[in-house]
């Protein structure tokens, strides 16, 4: 292998590495942006941070396999299509989609999620106009729950 080929190879390696293929020994299935597009029909560009959305989760989680997360939104349910929970640094950041209907009087959902490592939990409200409002809560994870 000559010097030129070697540089090309390193370049390719850097590009692949940058897409987040590797995640320790846990495969990285999707980046946050890919997961937003695939599972929520959103992208980072369409998201606006808003304090109308609230994420309730512990500051510290001993066990990443079982983290209680609540997402609530102070918005008119009629204007909302769905609520989402993402964990930004999970192999697949998408966790849950909750599609609402006129029978849902209050925008609220609670569940338990797995977190691979310390990261942000992202609560997203997708509006019927296609935009998304979000908020974050950082959770310190002692033992990861994905590997």
């Amino acid at each position: 292998m000559n010097r030129r080929d070697f540089i090309k190879l390193v370049g390719v390696g850097l590009v692949l590495g940058g897409t987040g293929v590797s995640f320790g020994d846990i495969p990285r299935f999707y980046t946050l942006e890919e997961a937003l597009r695939k599972f929520a029909g959103l992208s980072k560009k369409k998201l606006v941070k808003s304090n109308k959305v609230k994420v309730i989760a512990p500051n510290l989680a001993e066990d990443g396999a079982n983290v209680k997360v609540e997402v609530l939104a102070n918005l008119d349910p009629k204007k909302v299509e769905a609520l989402y929970i993402f964990s930004d640094d999970n192999p697949n950041p998408f966790i849950l989609e909750f599609k609402v209907s006129p029978y849902i009087p209050k925008l609220y959902v609670k569940t338990r999620i797995k977190m691979a490592k310390t990261s942000y939990v992202r609560g997203i409200v997708k509006l019927k106009n296609g935009k998304g409002l979000y908020n974050l809560k950082k959770v310190e994870v002692v033992a990861g729950g994905c590997g």
Binding site: A65, F98, K99, S101, Y103, I104, K106, Y108, R112, K114
Partner: peptide, 23 residues
């Protein structure tokens, strides 16, 4: 009548719990 629907990944914990409001 359908009042809500959830989709999820394997990122939801074992024996999943879902809490929500209905009219």
């Amino acid at each position: 009548k359908r009042v809500a629907s959830f989709r999820m990944s394997g990122g939801v914990s074992k024996n999943p719990v879902f809490t929500f409001y209905l009219k």
